[in-house]
Design a protein around this nucleic acid. Structure first.
Lengths: 355, 355
DNA sequence: TTTATATTTGTGTACCTACACACTTTTTTA
DNA sequence: TAAAAAAGTGTGTAGGTACACAAATATAAA
């Protein structure tokens, strides 16, 4: 053991009777060392339990890591996409003194060309790494092709495109999240109650995403014969405007008065539950993510369960993944599923206070 | 802005036409600077947006932080106390190059004198800070008195002693955790079903702890008139041995056949649910913590809900709290409640894979 | 005005690593 | 065998900060 003080390269040099230059050549396999001395040095490394000091190394190398993020724009501080951004900022803050540096870019979900424009801007920066939320599949593919040409590593966050050369995907297991939603909604319904799945799509978001969530949801009910003869409809509302949402829901509920549970496949459940409250409908709601709107509705009882996919943590993890790759050359797991937190009125505050 | 390269003290010196020595005196309020130069330097700090480089500072100071932890012993790698330990190890690993250094001590829950012995050993080390799980209240009070005499900062983890000079408490809101357990158990029971609360106490653990959890649990049922006429008993089993547990449960269940739900106030729910499975009893179980025994029982359906108080995260947070205090002189919140995660069969794996 | 004292300011070194460069020793080739 | 090439080894410096110490300047006392 003998780890009173940390072993330095000078300690190694003293032990092996060589200069620190030779130590360095051995450590970094830069050749030009006689077998005899190399052996002595390796013995020293072993005996003195040497670990390079990351601080001194970072300082000596003076490297700079520029990371670019490309996310959908957070229209207000209330919206979901504000959260991963906060996480990325937090992560970069931690590694700032290690030379990490962030340029955040945003694209509009209503405008593919804004994605392309920002992607090009990122390429112009020639970053060390990229964090991408690939909600536009086609444009994302073009972008990552160019990243690969330039050997710029990238991670996907929140949404995944499979079988690509991304370093890692950091986000939820979409199918699993739907399955859990199914279990939760089922737990607050009677066996005969009908269910509605609402896909509320904003702009040109990739709908393959919500399709997987829906599939997981339906799978829960299929997995249990006793539950599988319940009616489960799904509708897509191509807007987040109150009037549009209101009209679509009214249209549906008038035709389907047996609906007792709603599953909203993204973070906009509060738009639905507010409608229910307004029209005094006793319908259970399960949705995603701890955004302010959902929290308020959860607390006043209009939403029953929120599933959180830890958006802040996703951002932090994405940054950490890139850093570990740059500095420690550590290859991350290709898929890093975040925990899916089950949030109810009674535990939501603990989550809010800790992010 | 102009943050192309980070501002260094040399940059400040150039801007203010002084030496870096003077810069340092201003930065650290070491006096002996003429008002004129001080003003110029302060202007430089402002204009150039200077932030000291933590790496270089740490290297220059060469400080060493010795942290000692004092936890109950983890009898096997399966037991709860293995988890906070893992967290502490992870945290210390992060800050190792910043001079942080850990000595972990353990005490037996069956032997107060082992607590005293280890506490004395820690005092002998004269650490920079201490992480304490104060499960023996009296002995803990004596220990922290001595820590205070020596001005050694300490944090409580997992269990709290209120109104002490601890830097912070990092752990669950015990009352809230009981309340949530009540809500969860209620959600899987019929209104007329009876409930049993099991306090399984090992050694001389502080039972005030479980009393608070039980109080929170009962409060849930009191808060709702419709639920408050259900029978809720509680028993204390002063052992974790299978034969003891078995005898106590048999005794109770024979006299109380209406029992349909059990709440176990600590991490030993699997001992109860195994008994249920063995005796083919259809009794719902809610307990705490993702220990291997509970995970297995959750997966095979004998436990319905596990509430996790993020033990690993508690350890990490405790270390981070001390580090921030040492290095940034940042005073933490006196109470840092960890999120209370609701774990079911369907989401448990995400939690396991991420710790 | 000179000396003594206090105040202010600058310099050098340590912390640890990485790498360029220079120097020394050995081996190869003419 | 001398010169050239190759291999092996050591030195110096940068990177940013903190602090001891030296130096310079200003103020007070004689």
């Amino acid at each position: 053991m003998a780890k009173n003080k940390k072993t330095t390269i000078q300690d190694l040099a003293n032990y092996a009777n060589v200069s620190i230059g030779t130590i360095d050549r051995v450590l970094h396999n830069r050749g030009k060392v006689s077998p005899a001395k190399r052996k002595k040095v390796e013995e020293a490394i072993e005996k003195l339990d040497f670990n390079p000091n990351l601080l001194a190394r970072t300082l000596a190398l003076g490297r700079q890591f520029t990371v670019c993020s490309l996310f959908p724009e957070a229209t207000t501080s209330q919206s979901y996409w504000a959260l991963p951004k906060i996480g990325v900022d937090q992560g970069v803050e931690v590694y700032r003194d290690f030379g990490m540096d962030l340029h955040a870019y945003e694209y509009s979900l209503f405008d593919e060309s804004s994605f392309i424009k920002n992607a090009d801007a990122i390429l112009g920066k020639n970053p060390s790494g990229v964090i991408l939320a690939p909600l536009f599949e086609k444009e994302s593919l073009e972008f990552i092709t160019k990243l690969q040409e330039r050997s710029i590593p990238y991670v996907f966050i929140d949404a995944n495109i499979k079988n690509k050369e991304n370093l890692s995907y950091i986000g939820p297991d979409l199918k699993g999240s739907g399955y859990i939603a199914g279990k939760l909604l089922n737990s607050v319904l009677e066996p005969s109650d009908d269910i509605l799945i609402v896909n509320m799509v904003k702009g040109f978001e990739n709908s393959a995403h919500t399709a997987v969530v829906e599939k997981g949801f339906r799978e829960f009910f299929k997995s249990n014969a006793a539950l599988s003869n319940r009616k489960i409809d799904s509708i897509t509302i191509p807007s987040t405007l109150e009037t549009e949402v209101s009209r679509e829901l009214t249209k549906y509920y008038i035709k389907n008065p047996g609906t007792k549970g709603v599953f909203v496949t993204n973070s906009r459940a509060h738009l639905i539950s507010r409608y229910h409250a307004l029209h005094e409908l006793d319908i259970k709601v399960v949705g995603f993510d701890i955004v302010p709107g959902n929290v308020a509705e959860l607390k006043n009882g209009n939403i029953d369960y929120i599933i959180s996919q830890r958006p802040v943590f996703q951002g932090v993890t994405a940054v950490k993944t890139l850093f570990d790759f740059f500095v420690y050359k550590k290859s991350p797991a290709i898929v890093q599923y975040v925990p899916l937190d089950i949030i109810i009125k009674e535990n939501v505050d603990y989550y809010i206070n800790f992010q």
